[in-house]
Simulated assay, not measured.
Amino acid sequence: MKERPKWMKTSSLDELQTKVGHVIIMILLVKMLERSKMVTIATGLDLLSYSVCIFMSSASLYILHILHKGKQ
């Protein structure tokens, strides 16, 4: 490869911070999903808590995407 891919190019410190923030959020989500395989769902409250956790995680990714798209 003669040059870096387009997704690796950064033009400002804010853009770099945003990309690092996305990476951190993705790592946290992957770790959460790995640990969720060990959770036993015994009651409806457990299932509700698990569902809320997944919803909040996907909502945070969506909000990060919208905020990043608005800066471009």
Rank of each mutant, 00 (worst) to 15 (best):
L47E: 06
L61I: 12
L48Q: 07
T10A: 05
M1V: 14
A59Q: 07
G21H: 04
L16I: 00
I27H: 02
K71D: 03
E15V: 01
L13A: 14
E15Q: 13
L28Y: 06
L45H: 04
A59F: 15
R4M: 13
I63M: 09
T18M: 05
L61V: 12
L33V: 10
M38R: 11
K71P: 00
K19I: 04
K69A: 05
M26Q: 07
S58T: 15
L45R: 08
T43G: 03
H65A: 05
M56S: 14
T43F: 01
Y50P: 00
E3P: 00
H22I: 07
M26C: 09
I41E: 01
H22M: 13
L61R: 00
F55L: 15
S12W: 02
I54S: 00
P5L: 11
L61M: 11
L33M: 15
M56P: 00
C53F: 08
V23Y: 04
I54F: 13
P5Y: 07
Q17L: 09
I25K: 12
L45Q: 10
S11K: 14
V20M: 13
L47C: 01
R4K: 14
H68G: 02
T10D: 03
I27W: 04
V30E: 07
F55S: 14
M1H: 08
L67H: 02
L16C: 06
S60F: 08
F55R: 04
R35G: 05
V30H: 02
H68W: 02
L48N: 03
T18L: 02
L47D: 03
E3S: 12
I54P: 00
M56W: 06
M1F: 09
M8I: 00
K9Q: 12
K37L: 13
Y62E: 02
G70L: 05
Q17S: 10
T40M: 09
K31N: 12
P5W: 01
E3C: 07
S11N: 09
I54A: 08
E15S: 06
K71R: 14
L16R: 15
Y62A: 15
V30P: 00
L33D: 04
K9V: 06
S57A: 15
M26P: 00
T10F: 08
E34D: 10
Y50F: 15
V52S: 05
K37H: 06
